[in-house]
Amino acid sequence: MGTTLIFTIVVLTGLGVFLAVVLFIIAKKFNVQEDPRIDLVEAIMPGANCGGCGYAGCRAFAEACVKAGSLEGKFCPVGGNDVMMQVGEKLGVAVEQKAPMVAVVRCHGTCDNRPRTNFYDGTSSCKIMNSLYSGDTDCRFGCLGGGDCEKVCPFDAIKINPRTGLPEVDQDKCTACGACVRACPKNIIELRNKGPKNRRVYVSCMNKDKGVVAKKACSVACIGCRKCEKVCPFGAIKVEDNLSYIDFNKCKLCRKCIDECPTKAIWSVNFPVRVPKPQEVADEVSQVIEKEQ
């Protein structure tokens, strides 16, 4: 009895010591030297692993930040300036401020605006559809409605509206990670300045066909008439290849172009509803009366 007990204790102790030594040797031999700051930076990251920064995930981004020693050209779109400030503090380097961005869908070819000319019967994927043909409408630049953007969005921020067949961005959820921008085979989605009070003005069309062709395919297509270009007091609008583009860095949100656009292809969002001045109302009323007479 006594010997069994002693024997057991000795064997177990011996085994314990032996294994401890083995573990120690292995830990020494395979020790990986890692900058402890990587863990610190990673802890600050939002942890979405969306790849919006251009790296494989939050850890990879943290590694890159620590290794590079500066934050130049590195930005976490999800965490925004706050997170980057914190990273800068931890690493003791300067941080460049960036204006917050948001994904903008530049197509308004709803089922009403842009009649379908054929029915797509394959797998619902923009990528497959785009490699097959120009799309189920006469506009070969517009949204295909396959929902690739919706599928890749890690934040549930972009959704196809079944009524219009077009994706809609939830600006509160969107972190401008750019996943949808990369997924869209027609390059319709663009990251644009979120703008003061979320107010934005943009051309909601990508059609580069000539005006007649574009207008025939879609009633709200940009026809490249250059009226907006002429009316813009800040030189923010350029028309190239029959398509207008508003540079959000130059645009001062005056909205002169919106009234000028004959096809209503320019859109403004989050502006308060414009209350017409009394004089304007009076003019309009008199016009209506005149017409009726």
Binding site: G122, T123, S125, K127, I128, S131
Partner: peptide
């Protein structure tokens, strides 16, 4: 199953 739709895309 739309096998070829996806395989064609993956092949490219």
């Amino acid at each position: 199953i739309a096998l070829l739709d996806y395989i064609r895309m993956a092949k490219a």
